[in-house]
Simulated assay, not measured.
Amino acid sequence: MASKEDIRSSRRLHRRTLSPEQIAAAGASIAQHGTAWAAAASSGTAATFAVYVGVAFEPPTLPLIHSLHDAGHKILLPVCEPGRQLSWVYWTPSTVFVRSSYAPIDEPEGERLESEVVAGAAGIFMPATAVDRDGNRIGQGGGYYDRLLHGLDDSGRRPPTIAVVYDDDLLPSGSIPAEAFDRPVREVLTPSGLVRLDDRAQ
């Protein structure tokens, strides 16, 4: 079995082969399918969702963010904090982004809320470089989201989670080594649609 770092590097290299047109088309499809998932997760009512901004060759999520907003939902975006922790800012179309102090990304300006606010969300859209069909996920290597899910699991208030990847980033069962700290996902959002994984993923 390949190591997480080898898989992460391989998927990043593959993503760099995608054309701007392919990336844009993926973003549009992810917005469509992701908004449908949000409608089901919120029982068709306006709710709050934790999302993130896909950067560089990641699956684009700004179309999803705008689509969720247009559907009446509130959007929480993450901000990297010391100790690999996340805080959260409510996004609006007028939100200003600034360079992160802790990661090579731009982050929203605004009142920073602790991660407990995510416990009240209807769902969490999570970044990933790969997911296998057992629900094991590889993120960007910082461990921010595993820490977030660990805290939500400990509180017993974890909302539904869905990892966002390209179609080719969904790997066969057993492809990703699982560690004790990892928190599997049960659903994956790809440009081709929603994929529900093995029920062993919690």
Rank of each mutant, 00 (worst) to 15 (best):
A47S: 13
S94I: 02
F181G: 01
A119N: 11
V164R: 01
P177K: 13
F49L: 07
S175V: 00
F181L: 15
L152N: 05
E81C: 14
N136G: 00
S175E: 08
L149F: 13
H69M: 03
I75S: 09
T48R: 09
V51L: 14
Y102I: 07
Q140I: 06
H69D: 13
L64E: 07
L189F: 07
I138E: 10
G139C: 01
E187M: 14
R137Y: 03
Y166Q: 07
V117L: 09
V79S: 07
Y144G: 00
R157P: 00
D134V: 02
I65E: 02
L76I: 09
V165P: 07
A180C: 01
V98Y: 12
D132S: 11
G174Q: 06
Y102D: 04
G141K: 04
E107V: 15
T92I: 10
E187K: 15
G142H: 08
F57R: 07
E107C: 11
F57K: 09
I138N: 05
T161H: 01
L148W: 01
E107D: 12
H73R: 06
L149E: 04
R84H: 14
D168Y: 13
L86I: 10
A56C: 04
L113K: 06
I124A: 11
R137S: 07
I105K: 08
D70T: 14
L76H: 12
D167M: 02
A119C: 12
